[in-house]
Simulated assay, not measured.
Amino acid sequence: MNKDTLILVLSCLGIAQALFLVVYLLTLKKRNRKANLFLALTILGLTIRIGKSVLNVYLDLESWQRNLGLSGILLTGPALLFYGRALLLSKKEFLPKDAFHFLPFILFAALAIVIPNDGNPISYVIYILVFSHLAFYTLLSFGLLIRNKTEIRKPLGNWYRNLVIGTAFIWVFYMGNLAGLFSFYIGGALFFSLLIYVFSFLFLQKHAFQLGKYTSSTLDKSTSKELMQTLKKLFFEEEIYLDSSLSLESVSKRLNVSPRKLSQAINENEEKNFSDFVVSHRIEKAKVLLVDPKYRREKIIAIAYDCGFGNVTSFNLAFKAKTKYTPTQFRNEFGTA
């Protein structure tokens, strides 16, 4: 397989993966469907543009076909902005007047056959204007993050920021290519393929499938922090985590909040689920008891029960995962005779 064939295969794989994500998002009925739609349009817009780049290298495209590919850029910018609004500011409605943001894309695609794209000066001006449109919306997207940074949940903000940065890099590549800084034109398609697979990995590993988990929640960032502080105070003052029957439902009842909101507060502020949060406190308590001279002769199993663990096996596994020591090793290493 020669270099050109390899580049073609990698580029086509990226486009195929992108189209898969678009179809998946458009058919996903759970969680924030509005955000899913705008994310699908963002990816579709980039895919149209990148697909044109790949075809333009290997085929002799007509000017209207090149214009259709270029129109994808006019779709990407508004979709990226409104994806951010739907994801980060879920209460903000998409109004009928907002549809005008997509009018340049519709008109450009509809008039593709008459818009010049044959390498003359007017064609270059149009090309620059189209990418200026993307630059404008990319800046608006960054502005959305900056203006609302105190209200945006960290996982959502990080995900959207990375998406905007990836889009900005694609813009830089194509503008750099136009300016003669990058001569490897198909490199944009290769970078897009890499970007799509990175995003796909994040989808499958952690972020995107869970990004909308709390999108419809009424718990804002400041209230989430206050709830977390109240929970920590309860754990510190009453050590309720020592109760082996402790559950998310019982704690949420104590705090007079729903289990979902309590789970959200822990997830957003500690980046843990409820079980991991409780276990971490139990391990810290166990570390104190293991080095306490008063507990020197206490059996490990007794300390495990005293710290809220149901059995010594789960205690040993959790303790070693957290500290890299078994309880016995920890006591021998750090305890006093």
Rank of each mutant, 00 (worst) to 15 (best):
L88G: 07
F108A: 06
F277P: 00
N332H: 12
H281V: 02
L37M: 12
D243Q: 09
S280C: 01
M228L: 15
G69S: 08
E237L: 09
I240D: 02
K299F: 05
N32T: 09
V291P: 04
G84K: 02
P116E: 06
I122W: 10
T138W: 03
T27M: 05
I126S: 04
L163I: 15
L219D: 13
K287G: 07
E226C: 10
L194R: 02
P121K: 11
Q210K: 14
Y305R: 15
K272W: 11
N332S: 11
A16C: 13
E238G: 02
K149Q: 12
I122N: 09
R297Q: 14
E333L: 04
Y124K: 14
A35W: 06
L178R: 04
E270P: 00
N273R: 07
Y214F: 15
V312C: 08
T326N: 04
A179H: 05
L59F: 15
A179F: 14
G335M: 05
F319A: 04
A18F: 09
I113P: 00
A18I: 06
I240P: 02
V114N: 04
R260K: 12
N56C: 13
T150G: 14
V125T: 10
D4V: 01
I48H: 02
K221V: 13
A337C: 03
S193V: 00
S53N: 14
L129E: 12
E62V: 14
F330M: 02
L202N: 00
P78H: 04
L181S: 05
R282T: 07
K154S: 10
S90K: 12
I128V: 10
E93H: 09
L87I: 07
L44P: 06
I43Q: 10
V198T: 06
S247A: 03
K225F: 08
Y124A: 15
E333F: 05
Q229C: 12
K285W: 00
L89K: 12
L242H: 09
K213L: 13
T76F: 05
M175Q: 14
I106D: 05
R260G: 02
L25C: 06
L129I: 07
F131H: 15
S11K: 08
Q329M: 13
Y174V: 14
T47I: 08
F192T: 00
S263M: 13
Y305V: 08
H101G: 11
A109C: 02
Y214A: 09
F274E: 00
Y325S: 04
F191H: 02
L134H: 08
E333Q: 15
L219P: 11
F105T: 04
D118I: 10
L28W: 15
K154R: 14
I43M: 12
H133T: 07
V278L: 08
V125K: 06
S11D: 04
E268K: 06
K287W: 04
N267T: 06
